[in-house]
Design a protein around this nucleic acid. Sequence first.
DNA 1: CAATAGCATATTGGATACAATCTACAATAT
DNA 2: ATATTGTAGATTGTATCCAATATGCTATTG
Lengths: 225, 225
Amino acid sequence: MKLKLNAVNLGATSSSADIIFEALREAIVEGTMQDGDLLRQDQIATMFNVSRIPVREALARLEEQGLITNQRYKGAVVSSLSLDEISELFEFRALLESDVIRRSVERISDDTLEEAKDYAAQFARETDSNQWGRLNQQFHYTLYKDSNRPYHLQVISKALDNVGRYLRAQLVLTSGIDRARRQHAGILEAAIDRDAEAAAALTRDHILGASQSLIEFLEVERQKK
Amino acid sequence: MKLKLNAVNLGATSSSADIIFEALREAIVEGTMQDGDLLRQDQIATMFNVSRIPVREALARLEEQGLITNQRYKGAVVSSLSLDEISELFEFRALLESDVIRRSVERISDDTLEEAKDYAAQFARETDSNQWGRLNQQFHYTLYKDSNRPYHLQVISKALDNVGRYLRAQLVLTSGIDRARRQHAGILEAAIDRDAEAAAALTRDHILGASQSLIEFLEVERQKK
DNA sequence: CAATAGCATATTGGATACAATCTACAATAT
DNA sequence: ATATTGTAGATTGTATCCAATATGCTATTG
């Protein structure tokens, strides 16, 4: 007989290391932890009420992602990116994301379009700047998801993690959010028209435009110091 | 006064975890360890004469790279890729590598061209199939290195790690190595002519061609089981 | 007083020890 | 005989402990 019980796969539960990794990753991506901030193993271990062992495993994975830098016997710091590195990351995203959206729009479903429309609307009306990063990402991701390119999406996601905290800074500039809204509308329209080439070109412009205004902003910002 | 001594940066020395990570990575990429092989922490620890702690950190990093898969309380196995996943990885490489070689050839130095020529010659005359993978990679890398795109190269490198063991299988097919030699000559010629577009197009064909013949090979191979 | 050496403390890297969980096989029941 | 339960050994996850190294302060020397 079939047991009537909503079971969860306990074998797939997260280890402490998984949970700590996710928490630290999010803190870095969201900007809660800033460039150059020190990560003390003991301090993190105490915060999560575990020993340093799982913390170290989480740190090893974060370093592999490029989010932190480890110096033997000295400790780990949140990586900081040079303007050149940031610029390269945006060009990387422009290349990949325009390719992915092209393939996605070619086969996009009506349901996915509805979902994207919804996120675009939420993004347009959201006033809390802390939500912008997440909503922006959800909008774009929705438009990519029918591409059937899981590896591409994973790589895009990692690249986004590495620029997330800088992107946020860019959106908070009022012109940043306004332009993002207009450009989202344009991309969405191209997707609705099933015009894959237009969607790809607009996505590319969207990313490179954000890059340019971010770089200009950071040049002034970093000059100050 | 300046001390006359060739010092090495001891602060940058590798931890045990680094060394174990590299060794395992190479074993997987080179195909010494096969798809589905189990990685026992204790066994690896004994081999390297350390405790399981650094082994676990190496495994955490390998999993982050996608080279192994970890199941809580069960252990780690070398990841195996479906034909779809392999196919996607080659398309990913085609996209990125053609972009990178385009930028690289635009500004390629004579020294770099000489180096590439040398690797192409070595690859053409090499009879030991164990060397093909390495020489193939060195040839391509040389042609990419003037691109000034370190992040792109790093991502390409990781993608290559994930298909390395399959690529090797493809090259060993006689038609694989022959075609690779011809195509390398073509790409090299385009680079010498500073024809970035041609180099990009040929690189793309080279990668997608290898993909197609590999997939055909694996379809037969996997059918057998 | 400046520069250096010596020392104390903090922090990381790794070994050992133990707890949680899995796996395979024996024991038992139907 | 087959299915289920119990148990032992193997393996992983984590805590605790020790060693190696870095950092900052104090003392000493010229």
